[in-house]
Amino acid sequence: MTKYKILYAEDDETLAFLTKDNLEQPYEVVHCADGISALETFKASSFDLCIFDIMMPKMDGFELAEAIRKLDEQIPILFLSAKTLKEDRIKGLRIGADDYLVKPFSIEELLLKIEIFLKRTNKPSKEQKSIYTLGRYHFDSKNYLVFTENEKINLTQRESDLLKFFLDHKNVVLKREEILKSLWGDDDYFMGRSLDVFISRLRKIVATEKGIAIENLHGIGFKFSITE
Rank of each mutant, 00 (worst) to 15 (best):
E159A: 08
N154F: 10
Y189C: 05
I199R: 03
D196T: 11
N150M: 00
D188V: 00
Y189F: 14
L167W: 01
S160Y: 05
Y189M: 13
F198L: 14
G185K: 01
L167F: 05
R176Q: 14
K170C: 09
K204P: 00
R176T: 15
V173W: 04
V197H: 10
D187Y: 06
L195A: 02
V146D: 04
K170P: 00
L145Q: 04
F147L: 06
V197C: 06
F166P: 00
L162N: 08
V146I: 13
I179H: 02
F166C: 08
Y189D: 11
L202A: 05
D161P: 04
F190K: 13
W184Y: 12
L167H: 02
N154H: 10
E177M: 11
L180R: 00
S194V: 00
V173R: 10
N150L: 08
R193N: 12
E149M: 04
D196K: 11
V197M: 11
R158L: 09
W184H: 00
F165N: 04
V172Q: 15
N171S: 06
V172E: 14
F165R: 06
L195F: 00
W184Q: 02
R203K: 15
L167P: 05
I153D: 01
M191R: 12
D188M: 06
K170E: 13
L183A: 08
L183W: 05
L162S: 02
I179M: 07
L180C: 10
S200V: 02
G192M: 04
K152C: 03
K204I: 08
K164I: 00
S200K: 13
E159Y: 05
V173S: 12
L180A: 10
